[in-house]
């Protein structure tokens, strides 16, 4: 239906994640797992904890309780190795977070040179290759301030991919973009999904979700309320709240 699933290895396993900010409990016990080549899309109202969840996965935010496994190795409670794990998880932010003092090419190179310790020539070749994949080889020497929002996000995808991650985490990748620029970024992400990358995508783009997701997960108030394959999820959601959310979204985004 959507894409090939290679084998049954579980690439990412998230178990019972809890996180509090002060007195507020943002994540109240999230668990799911994702197999190689799968794409899971997380949707839900703002404040449901979706971004926090993603940041707990690569430990940019440390969860209060719960465990995370990447390819069989436990990620949580391993402060010393966390950088090694982060290299294997690519993250794309809503605000792009490109390094403003570096050109597009250098943005992609820097992780290769400083973290993976590649030599300059190798790093440059790989970086150019990744930029080509997202269609931006001609913008290689431009600074972030000189790029459009869609171009910035594509560079940030290239930057994350250059590290050869096992899983890609997308945190509302198109929410900060002007409408006419959303398409180019979604295309790039779709290309990745069909190419077999394992991904977790937080988004409001339902059309996109329908076409790439192996599973849709609906989060509300820090819990997973409902999940299922796209066809069943969109046409026949189990819970009233899910239905209401989907209706609101289709009103807003006209799907």
């Amino acid at each position: 239906m959507n894409k090939m699933q290679n084998d049954n290895d579980i690439v990412l396993r998230v178990e019972d994640i809890h996180k509090c900010y002060g007195k507020e409990e943002i994540l109240k016990g999230i668990s799911f797992e994702i197999k190689k080549g799968e794409t899971k899309v997380i949707i839900g109202p703002s404040g449901s904890g979706k971004s926090t969840l993603l940041r707990c996965i690569n430990q940019l935010t440390i969860p209060d309780k719960g465990r995370i496994w990447l390819g069989g190795e436990e990620v949580t409670h391993h402060k010393k190795d966390i950088n090694r794990f982060r290299q294997k998880m690519g993250m794309v932010f809503q605000d792009f977070n490109l390094f403003d003092h570096l050109t597009a090419l250098k943005n992609v190179e820097i992780g290769l040179m400083k973290v993976k310790k590649m030599d300059k020539k190798e790093a440059r070749e790989k970086a150019m290759e990744e930029l080509k994949q997202v269609g931006l080889e001609r913008q290689a020497d431009l600074y972030p301030a000189q790029l459009s929002g869609g171009q910035k996000q594509r560079v940030s995808i290239a930057r994350a991919l250059a590290m050869d991650p096992k899983v890609m985490l997308f945190d509302e990748p198109t929410s900060a973009l002007d409408p006419e620029l959303i398409g180019e970024v979604l295309e790039a992400i779709k290309k990745l999904a069909f190419g077999g990358m394992t991904m977790v995508v937080v988004t409001h783009e339902m059309g996109f979700a329908r076409s790439v997701a192996n599973e849709i997960i609906f989060m509300e108030n820090g819990k997973i309320l409902e999940s299922g394959i796209p066809y069943q999820f969109f046409s026949n959601p189990k819970y009233e709240r899910t239905k209401r959310f989907l209706n609101k979204i289709t009103e807003l985004y006209g799907e």
């Binding site: 950088n83 982060r86 977070n97 390094f99």
Partner: peptide
């Protein structure tokens, strides 16, 4: 400097120092 810069650097696997 926006906090996102540090986050993006750490997401790539850089140590705080780097």
């Amino acid at each position: 400097i926006k906090t996102g810069q540090m986050m993006a650097a750490e997401a790539l696997g850089m140590t705080r120092f780097k």
